[in-house]
Design a protein around this nucleic acid. Structure first.
Lengths: 156, 156
DNA sequence: TCTACATTCTCTAGTCACTAGAGGATCAAG
DNA sequence: CTTGATCCTCTAGTGACTAGAGAATGTAGA
C-alpha cells in the first residue's frame, strides 16, 4: 500500500489531481491509515495509470469514465470501447484540420508584414478586415488550448 | 448607433459575449439610452469585428488586448504586432505537431482492435499499458479543447 | 389604449480539468 | 524534541465564455 505522494510519482499524476479524480468518482475512495491518510493498492495505481494515459491521449474524463466502466465488464463486446476511441480519433483529425486552416491564414497574414508603423500595418488590417480572408474557422472553430500541461515548463 | 442585438448579428458575437468584452475592458463602455440600453457606434462595431476575427484566429484575449493597444498607437513600429502574430503562429504549429503525434498513437491503438470481449480488448490494454506506446505527448502535451465553439452544433 | 412579444438589463452560477493557497495535523529522521 | 516533509480539508481561481433568473423597456398589431 502506497501513500498518495508515492502514487503521484509512480503515475505522474499530481497529488491534488489524484484527490480530484477520487472526488469525481473515477477511482473509489482508497483505504486510509488511522490518522486519515490515503493508502493505495496496486490496483488503484493501475487504474490511475490508465486514466493518466488516456488523458495524455486527449480523452475527456467522461470518455474515461465510460472506458473504465467497460473494462470493468470483461464479458461485453469491445464494440463500445472501439467506438469511443474511433470517435475521439476523428475529433483529433478534425482538430488538426481546423488548426491547419488556421495556420495557413496566420502565415498569410504574418508574411504580409513589411515593417513600418502600425498605422499601415498589414497584420492589423488583416485582423480588422475579415472579409478579405478565407475565413478558415468561422464556424465549428478551433480556440486556443488553455494550458499546455501540468509538467510543461511554465513561463510566468 | 446600434442596439446590442444589431451589433451581435453584424459581428457574429453573441450578446452576452459583447457585454463580457466590455466588462473585460476590451471595448469601452458604450453610450446608453435614457432607459439604460447600450448604443454602439460604427467604431465600436469595427473594434468588435477585430476582436472577433482575432479570436477566430485563436489569439487569446490578452494578445488581443495588446494588439488593440498597439493599433491605437499608429506611430509605433509594427514590430510588436508582428511578434505577437509570429509567436502565435509558432504555437499553432507546435499544437499541430502534438496533435499529429497523438493521432498516430490513437490510430495505432484503434487499428489493433479485432473485436471480441473487453477482457482481451487491445484498446483497453494499450491504454492501461503506457510502457508499450511511443508516449507521444507525455510532457508539454496536448489536452482536449474544451468546447468546440459558440456556433458549433452542440450535442447534448 | 391594450396586449403580446421581443429585446434588453443586471446578476449569479456553471463549464472543464485541473491548480494554488490557507491553515492545520501527522510522520520520519536526526 | 525538533525540524522538515508529507498529508489533510476546504475554498477559490483559471479562460472564455454560456445559461438562466427575474425584471424593465420597446414595438407592433388589434
Amino acid at each position: 500500500m502506497l501513500a498518495i505522494g508515492a502514487v503521484a510519482s509512480r503515475t505522474g499524476i499530481k497529488i491534488p489531481t489524484i484527490r480530484f479524480y477520487e472526488q469525481e468518482g473515477l477511482i473509489e475512495a482508497p483505504a486510509r491509515t488511522d490518522s486519515g491518510r490515503r493508502l493505495y493498492s496496486d490496483e488503484d495505481v493501475r487504474r490511475l495509470s490508465f486514466i493518466r494515459h488516456a488523458r495524455d491521449l486527449g480523452f475527456e474524463l467522461d470518455d474515461i469514465r465510460s472506458l473504465l466502466d467497460l473494462s470493468d465488464q470483461p464479458d461485453r463486446t469491445c464494440a463500445d470501447v472501439d467506438q469511443i476511441a474511433r470517435l475521439h480519433l476523428s475529433e483529433v483529425e478534425a482538430r488538426i484540420e481546423r488548426l491547419r486552416a488556421l495556420k495557413r491564414e496566420l502565415t498569410r497574414i504574418v508574411s504580409s508584414c513589411a515593417g513600418g508603423r502600425t498605422a499601415e500595418c498589414r497584420i492589423i488590417e488583416a485582423l480588422a478586415d475579415h472579409g478579405r480572408c478565407e475565413t478558415p474557422t468561422h464556424d465549428g472553430r478551433e480556440r486556443k488550448a488553455k494550458r499546455s500541461s501540468a509538467r510543461a515548463p511554465k513561463r510566468k
